[in-house]
Simulated assay, not measured.
Amino acid sequence: MPLSPTELDRYRRQMQLPGFGEAAQLQLKNTTALVTGVGGLGGTAALYLAVAGVGKLILVRGGDLIRDDLNRQVLMTDDWVGKPRVYKAQQTLAALNPDIEIEAVCEYVSADNIDELVQAADIALDCAFDFKERDLLNGACVRHGKPMVEAAMNSMEAYLTTIIPGQTPCLTCLYPEKPNWDRWGFGVLGAVSGTLACLAALEAIKLITGLGDPLLGQLLTMDLARAEFTKLRTFHDHDCPVCGGISHHPKKTANRQLATAAP
């Protein structure tokens, strides 16, 4: 389906980017993105996917909004405290961009729902707060051949990479031993989660449209207290229990179209 006159007007400035244009905008429109953990990180990433024109967003997050979420969860408002946050995220994004479809799933990622969620999407953004959900999403993306943008933070540090089954190491290759993770055990500054979220959304947009070079086989680490950024090469464990049996092709160009990255 071609872009409508309203969409052409809405996305005119980004379509002026060299190498982007109407073709890239159509790729965004024809993409379904799954965002898990729609909080300070996932909610902000979803915001920038929405205003960029990703055609459908599937937002997944259980639980109700609490007041200390409000220093970083920019889709929320104070009058929503005590209500399911994912529905407020859906409402806010629909008001920002009525031209896209937004599905809200008021559940946490689980073994019972993850395969259905991943199969319904073209790309996933992992913004969950614990490794249990992250590992479930990683495993499902590997099983179904879907690319995944992996974003995580801890205090003033942040981490970002893009995982493509059969081309890059998976999350279990990166973290075979899971660190102890207490969601209440570290402070969170909204500008830190927002910085990482913007970069995660950009990774997804790059992968979908072919704009620039995504972080394939690279882990971007950020010490935002010192504004220090480092790229590390990631290692594929051929004995990885999740992706070890998949043939890897590190030289394959996967970001020209999402369709080539996610068969």
Rank of each mutant, 00 (worst) to 15 (best):
N113T: 12
A201R: 04
D78M: 04
V242D: 12
E22I: 15
R72K: 07
R13I: 10
P165L: 05
A197K: 10
L117R: 10
Y108V: 07
N71K: 02
V54S: 06
G82S: 05
F129E: 15
V149R: 02
T209S: 08
G39H: 04
A46C: 09
C173Y: 00
D213I: 09
C240H: 02
R72P: 10
I114K: 06
Q73L: 06
P18K: 08
T6K: 14
R85T: 00
L189N: 00
E7R: 12
K83H: 15
T162H: 04
E228M: 03
I123S: 04
A158D: 02
L160K: 05
A95N: 09
I164C: 08
L189C: 03
L75C: 14
A204Y: 02
G37M: 13
L174I: 01
E116Q: 15
L49A: 11
L47Q: 15
V38H: 11
M76S: 15
L26T: 12
A201K: 01
A158V: 09
P214A: 12
A204H: 01
S247A: 15
T168W: 01
P241S: 06
R143P: 07
L28P: 10
E103P: 04
K252D: 11
V81C: 02
C170P: 03
L96K: 06
Q91W: 13
D122C: 03
V74H: 07
R61K: 14
N154Q: 14
A124H: 01
S4G: 10
G190Y: 11
V51R: 11
G19A: 08
Q90A: 10
F186H: 14
P165E: 03
S193I: 09
L258E: 07
T44W: 11
M76G: 02
R134M: 09
I246E: 07
G40P: 13
K88S: 11
R12N: 14
I66K: 10
V60I: 11
L189F: 08
I100H: 05
A89V: 12
K231P: 00
N180V: 15
S110A: 13
L232M: 07
T253V: 15
G166A: 06
D213H: 14
C141E: 11
L174K: 00
R61P: 01
D182P: 03
R233Y: 04
I123H: 07
I102D: 12
Y48T: 04
D78Q: 13
G43S: 05
L207Q: 02
T230F: 02
P2S: 14
T161I: 01
Y48A: 06
A197C: 05
E7H: 12
Q25T: 12
V142S: 09
G62D: 11
I246A: 08
L220G: 02
I58L: 02
K231M: 05
L171Y: 14
P147E: 09
E150L: 02
G42T: 03
P98Q: 13
G82D: 07
D9K: 15
C240V: 01
A33R: 08
L93I: 13
H238C: 03
L57P: 13
G62P: 01
T162V: 09
P84D: 09
F20P: 04
L47T: 15
L26R: 14
H144M: 05
A197D: 04
L136A: 13
R256A: 10
N113W: 14
L75I: 08
G210K: 05
R134G: 11
L65I: 12
L8A: 03
G245Q: 10
E107H: 10
D130V: 04
D130G: 06
I205Y: 03
V188C: 09
A50G: 08
G21I: 13
